[in-house]
Amino acid sequence: MSDPHFSPILVPLGDTSLLVRFGTRLDDGANRRAVAFARQLAAVPPSGVVEVSPSLVSVQLRYDPKLIGFEALCVDVRLRIGAVEGQATPVRRERIAVRFDGEDLLEVAAALGLSAEVFVAAHNAVPLRVLATGFAPGFVYCGFHEAALTIARRTTVRSLVPAGTVLFAAGQTAIAATPIPTGWHVIGHTAFANFDAGAQPPVRLAAGDEISFEALS
């Protein structure tokens, strides 16, 4: 569990980005604070900041060093951290239909001591939050599943899975929106496409959104 009093760490990412870290390991509290803080910053960006990008437990602020230096930006950011709300309400709620036909589905269910049917029902039982984006175009990490549904990654990496592949590991479900290599378990496929290079914006989901998964029979 994350310590609610954990004060974020500010570190430089090179000479044009600042990283605000709400934790050094993935947990729900750190993720919620990162998402909420990113949203607050994006609404009213600090002077000199040109891009705000939330990650699993941190927020990247890309800035123009000709407009503001690292130390001055840290002062501004520290003042804003005190005002963060711990909860960011979802901007968007999305129902995503999944065909649970992944090649690892039976193996995953068995590893959890469940039948495939019971696993799918448990997987879809409660809505998940989009924890983070950014790994690949349109890719989303969604979580968290209850502890009983937590399973480690595969020991080997599949070199490429197609767009729409629904992945499962580490208490999360992820959706690939472009072909990617992955060490996660493939549990299904969806027609939901979260990346369109011709659209503005090119993605539909953002960190903090709420996803309800539904099984397509």
């Binding site: 990412l13 090179g14 050094t24 699993l56 941190s58 983070a132």
Partner: peptide
């Protein structure tokens, strides 16, 4: 085993 964090050019 590290949590995934943003990468920048030059890392």
């Amino acid at each position: 085993s590290l949590v995934s964090d943003p990468i920048v050019c030059g890392d």
